[in-house]
Amino acid sequence: MHTKITSFSEADIEEASELLARRHQGDRIHEPALPERFSRPSEARLELEQTWKASTVNGMSAGGVVARQDGKMVGYLIGVPKINEMWGRSVWVEYAGHALDRSYSAELYRDLYAALSPTWVALGCLYHVTNIPASDQAAIDAWFNLSFGKEHVYGLRETAPASSFDVPIDPTLEIRRASPADLDISSQLDDVISLHQSRSPVYSIVTPYDREEVRQETLEQLENPEWKTWLALRNGQLVSTQVYLPAQPPRGIGNMVLPEKCSFLGFAATREEEQGQGIGRILTAHGLADDYATGYAFCFTDWRATNLLSSRMWMRQGWRPIAYRLTRRLDERVLWSHAKASPAPWLDKRFANE
């Protein structure tokens, strides 16, 4: 059967919503905690419409494509452009921005990307991102075969009562919730994560930030009753901290992975010389037990796949991967090498005449 790939349009949203809802039904077989409502096309449509609307920003469109066989939609792919200091010139395939009929080969993702990505390159967006369900190994393999790699992991686990955690007792540690009076103490580990991730093997960038602005944000968090900052102190010195808050839709992922009554472990840091001593494990047990006691059934968190400490710790603490962010960065030389057939005026002659 011949597969025809055409541009995505507003008229395709209804059929694509049905495809996305069926994808979610399959995802829930592997992870029943995923919210059931997105198995209905009407609910899946809300996420898809937001993604399609975001595909055009300030007149710049990353577009979308649809694959059909015998007139039936069997797959779609939508890109969302993002241009900012953090991500540079990038295009994101958000969690709701793609789906395939799983009775067809996941190889179709490669064809959809091949058809749509020239639009992204023409915009000068060479950093490409896709967010996919962790349970869809066939899709993961297809994206890996497009030279994408796993950058970020999104995980989910149940909260639990304190009695279910088997953690060592350290009488030298004081565990307590921070108050606004603890502003100075709770800010002591602000740079631990960024510095750790700037090193091998993550090599993440560290951008300058306004410390006074961050300090004010921290104070607002400490004053917010829904944000819980837990401190682990030894002899009055902060050795570890974790922040729990009501879960919000993650960037590029949206609502489709967040169950009801879900919290978010948004920040966790341990002083470098104290790492590996089990302090983070003790603090996590405390935070999850408190969330359980206050009515949360699940806790969501995320981490860099290349961060060896966090990727191992959170899996050991019971978080299950439910989604991955895969990325690919193109060599910027494709911008001039593609122009050789019809040289742009700014190209050096020796490239244009090759």
Rank of each mutant, 00 (worst) to 15 (best):
I169W: 13
A289H: 00
C125T: 08
V80K: 08
T159S: 14
P180A: 15
V57M: 05
S263W: 13
V80C: 12
A160R: 14
L265I: 08
Y324D: 03
G124Q: 10
L245N: 05
L156V: 06
R45Y: 06
P343N: 05
I83R: 09
D291Y: 00
Y244I: 12
A160P: 00
K150E: 00
T294Q: 07
L46Y: 03
S9A: 08
T241W: 02
Y203C: 01
M1A: 07
I13Q: 11
A134P: 03
R304Y: 15
N235C: 03
D12P: 04
T241P: 00
R177N: 03
A115V: 02
P208A: 05
G295R: 02
R304M: 15
F148L: 05
K72Y: 00
E174T: 14
L146C: 05
L189W: 09
Y203E: 07
F351I: 14
T172A: 13
D170A: 06
F144Y: 08
L265H: 04
V192D: 02
V121G: 01
Q216T: 10
A67W: 05
V129F: 03
Y296N: 14
L183E: 11
Y104E: 12
T218F: 12
Q69R: 10
K228R: 10
S204E: 15
A96L: 07
E47Y: 04
G79W: 07
Y127Q: 12
L222N: 06
E151W: 10
E260F: 03
A44V: 08
Y209E: 13
A232C: 11
F148T: 12
V80W: 02
Q50F: 04
R325E: 14
